[in-house]
Amino acid sequence: MKSGKFWAWVVFALGAAYFFIPLIATVEFSMRMRRGAYSFDAYQIVLGDPRFQATFGYSVLAAVFTIILGVLIVVPAAYWIRLRLPQLRPIVEFITLLPLVIPAIVIVFGYIRMYGSNSPLPFLATDMGTNALLVIGYAMLALPYMYRAVDTGLRTIDVRTLTEAAQILGAGWGTIIGRVILPNVLIAVLSGAFLTFAIVIGEFTMASLLNRPAFGPYLQNVGANRAYEPAALAIIAFAITWGCMSLIQILSRFAPRSANRPN
């Protein structure tokens, strides 16, 4: 009993060390810019860099649009599949997994071929079009996470009966999705949204090949040319991701008190 507990702690400590030592080393390194003393100089430089602000702003905006697009596509689709086409679920699940299997670079080259300036759908002819294409690409990259999150949320409610209860009270599809389904899967949608956010903020391949001024290519650029700043950037990116994860945790605690707690 005692020794079992002891070894459990040893394994835990090893795991924690594996995770934290590189992190601590990076933090330590990022603070050594000034000779002989620890300082936040590297962070100051990074945060003060106008290109950091511009690219980060661009990626945040792209993430917001990606999330909106993803929610608009995934929530009605996952809902309809649960309600009317349950036999399609395995197929749809497979399709949503494809972005994990097909490398982003393949998809981007496909896009460039398909949507070039002299194609029938010339997304790439304008800046706005290219931005839109990037958001569409991101929505697809985030699909596996968004779909799974929403589908799991839908599993916790009795979709069919709630739909019928709303229908018989006179509600149409808009009301049903907006007032009954979405609020009950809001937490799931939010966790999908934060995962999407984390993916979009760090994404490199698509943004770079579509030549967009996003945060990912900026990270790469700084990483290739500087010494201390990349470490600071890595820590900042890490903090953002962790911030997202903690927000998911906090939000699910403050969720509309309602959502389906077992009696």
């Binding site: 709630l162 007032r179 309602s258």
Partner: peptide, 12 residues
């Protein structure tokens, strides 16, 4: 109007 076996109240 309809009443269901599983109540089907809107939890939110």
């Amino acid at each position: 109007g309809m009443v269901f076996q599983a109540y089907a109240l809107f939890p939110n």
